[in-house]
C-alpha cells in the first residue's frame, strides 16, 4: 500500500478583506461575499513566494513524517506562480531540506491542479518501487488582475505531502484523473495576469470536470458519497465546492473541514491539497476521504484516502492548518496589498 507519510501546510499571515478590494473598484462587497462566499484572502508579503511557502510546508511535512530528507527520491513542486520562468522551484526546496543530490526534481504546472498532479506522480513512483519517498508540493502566490473577479480570491498558501509505503498516515486506496482540452482560464507567456472565460469557467469547465472525476473514481472504487467521512473539492471560491458537492450528493458536513476558501481565498495549486491537510488534522483512524482537485485547461485528479492509526501521533508533530489560517492574522489595506503584490509602478 502507498500513501501519505507526512503532510504539512503553510499560509502567509497577512489578509485582505473583500470590502477593502471592493471599495477600490466601486463593487458591492456584500453581494460579492454572498455570491462567491468569500470574506477575505491571504496576502503574501514581498519576501514570500511559492518557493518559501513550499519550503515551510515541506518542513512541516518532514516533522510529521519523521524521516531523513536524504531518503526523499523526488521533489515536485506544482504551481502556476513559480518565481522563475526558467529555473525550477523544486531545486531550492530540495536544497533547503537537504534532499540533494540523489533526487529527481521537476516543477509542475496545470493551473490549480499542479499540486495534486505532483501527488499523483509521487504515489506512482513510490508504488513502482523507484524510490522510498517522494515529495509533492502544491503552492501558489497567485495574482488576479486589478478589478477582476479573480482579485477577490487569488491568494497564497502551500501544502506538502511525503508519499511512501510504510508508516502511513493515510493510504491511497484509489486514484483517477479526468481531463479534456477546455480553455476556461489561461495566462500566455510574458503576461502578468491570467485571463478567464467568465461564466464559461463554471458549468462546462469546473462542474463538468469535477463531477466527471468524482463519478469516475467512485465507480472505480465502488463507493458512494455516504461511504466517505469527508470530501475536499478544489475551491476557486466558497460557492463552487458546496454546489458541486450538493450535485454529487455530499453534505456540507462532509465538505466543511476542508472548505477553507471563504477565509483563505483560492490558493490555486494549494487549494484542495490545503483542504486535505486541514481535514487530516481532525480526522480519525479509518476515516475515508475523497479529494478532487481541479485545474483549468482542464482536468481533475481524484484520490480516495483511508486514514490510519498513525494520524493520532502525527497530527500534532507540526502546526495545524487552521492555526495558520485563523490565528495571528495581520490585515492590510488595499494600498499595502498593491505594494506587496507589485501592482504599483515605481521608478527603477
Amino acid at each position: 500500500m502507498v500513501g501519505i507519510v507526512g503532510y504539512g501546510a503553510m499560509i502567509p499571515r497577512h489578509r485582505i478583506k473583500v470590502e477593502e478590494i471592493a471599495k477600490v473598484w466601486g463593487a458591492d462587497a456584500p453581494s460579492y461575499k454572498k455570491g462567491l462566499m468569500l470574506w477575505q484572502k491571504s496576502v503574501p508579503t514581498p519576501d514570500v513566494d511559492t518557493i518559501t511557502l513550499s519550503v515551510e510546508a515541506t518542513k512541516n511535512a518532514i516533522k510529521r513524517a519523521q524521516i531523513n530528507p536524504k531518503d526523499i527520491g523526488a521533489v515536485y513542486v506544482g504551481s502556476e506562480s513559480h518565481p522563475y520562468a526558467v529555473k525550477p522551484s523544486g531545486t531550492t526546496v530540495a536544497e533547503a531540506i537537504g534532499a540533494v543530490p540523489d533526487c529527481h526534481c521537476a516543477d509542475f504546472e496545470f493551473a490549480c491542479k499542479a499540486g495534486s498532479e505532483a501527488m499523483f506522480v509521487c504515489l506512482g513512483l513510490v508504488k513502482s518501487g523507484y524510490m522510498k519517498y517522494a515529495l509533492a508540493v502544491g503552492g501558489d502566490t497567485s495574482q488576479g488582475a486589478p478589478g477582476d473577479a479573480l482579485e477577490y480570491s487569488a491568494s497564497a498558501g502551500a501544502a506538502a505531502f511525503i508519499m511512501g509505503k510504510t508508516n502511513l498516515i493515510a493510504e491511497a486506496l484509489e486514484t483517477y484523473s479526468f481531463m479534456t482540452d477546455t480553455p476556461d482560464f489561461w495566462r500566455r507567456e510574458h503576461e502578468f495576469y491570467p485571463q478567464h472565460g467568465g461564466r464559461f469557467t463554471g458549468e462546462p469547465a469546473y462542474f463538468r470536470t469535477v463531477t466527471g472525476a468524482a463519478m469516475g473514481i467512485m465507480n472505480k472504487a465502488k463507493m458512494k458519497p455516504k461511504d466517505f467521512k469527508y470530501v475536499i473539492f478544489h475551491q476557486p471560491n466558497g460557492k463552487f465546492p458546496l454546489r458541486v458537492g450538493k450535485m454529487l450528493g455530499f453534505t456540507k458536513k462532509q465538505i466543511e473541514p476542508g472548505w477553507l476558501t471563504p477565509r483563505l481565498g483560492n490558493t490555486y495549486s494549494g487549494s484542495s491539497p490545503l483542504g486535505l491537510t486541514s481535514t487530516l488534522d481532525i480526522s480519525k483512524p479509518g476515516d475515508m476521504i475523497l479529494m478532487i482537485s481541479y485545474g483549468s485547461g482542464a482536468g481533475s485528479d481524484a484520490f480516495v484516502w483511508r486514514v490510519t492509526d498513525r494520524i493520532k501521533e502525527a497530527r500534532d508533530l507540526a502546526v495545524h492548518t487552521t492555526t495558520l489560517l485563523d490565528k495571528n492574522q495581520i490585515f492590510v489595506d488595499y494600498g499595502t496589498y498593491a505594494k506587496y503584490r507589485h501592482k504599483i509602478l515605481k521608478n527603477k
Binding site: 519576501d47 513566494d49 518559501t52 515551510e56 527603477k348
Partner: peptide
Amino acid sequence: LEFRKIQTDD
C-alpha cells in the same frame, strides 16, 4: 526562523 526571499536582484 522562517524561510524567506531576501533579495530579488531587480
